[in-house]
Amino acid sequence: MQVFSTPKTIKENSSFTFCPGCDHGVALKLVAMVLDELNLQEQTIAVASSGCSVLLYDFLDVDCIESPHGRACAVATGIKRAHKAQGNNKFVFTYQGDGDFASIGISESLHSALRGENITAICINNTNYGMTGGQMGPTSTLGQITSTSPLGRNKEYHGFPIKTAEHIALCDGASFSARVALYDVKNIINAKNTIKKAFEYQKEGLGFSFVEILSSCPTNWKLSPQDSHKKIEEELSKTYKLGIFKDIKNE
């Protein structure tokens, strides 16, 4: 019996352009698997953003639009509402990095959550600006060395990082907000189930659903893929606690 095959929502003959060992590939695969399982491929419009996630439309076999940097949730709002105004219910999700979602786009992101836009946002948190070569981002942790915090992030000098999933959980319009990781099989399975839940909440019309995925960036962290996962397990998941911070069904 075939227990795994390439998800049909992954484009045939496409190869991810991410660096070796990058968790982006795992996250996208999970998104594709969930789209398959929920049979959403043909009613989905995905919103790509700027950064490593920009080439989404080369990998996912769904309708896709690229948004200006940080504006993915605003673009998704427009798509979802425009279809609704035409009497159509489409599935709309964004796939963004932490810089895109929580720094340059935090206004668009938070207000989409506050309005309870019935969309889903997936945010890949790898604690730096990956595509430009590993600069300090909104989620870089205290002490983290990046190309623009060469002495380590210092709270007096650089200020504090943001805990995105907890912020989204504070928004009344959010139906679901969780943080997951991908550093081992157990967490990957949990991440997939969490993404599925977030997608299902949109299908049920419950409002803004959000999954922050703690992800590795071996190239810019200057660690092997294996050591990157160890760092997430031992350090990052202590700063960025894994779990569900808002679940409208449990309130």
């Binding site: 795994f4 992954i10 991810f16 081992d184 990957i188």
Partner: peptide
């Protein structure tokens, strides 16, 4: 074992198929 763990962790979907008998 056909456990699929390799396919789940592969970031490039280079493991394209797992068959368990």
């Amino acid at each position: 074992l056909g456990c699929s763990q390799c396919a789940l962790v592969c970031p490039d979907i280079a493991i394209t198929e797992v068959v368990k008998e």
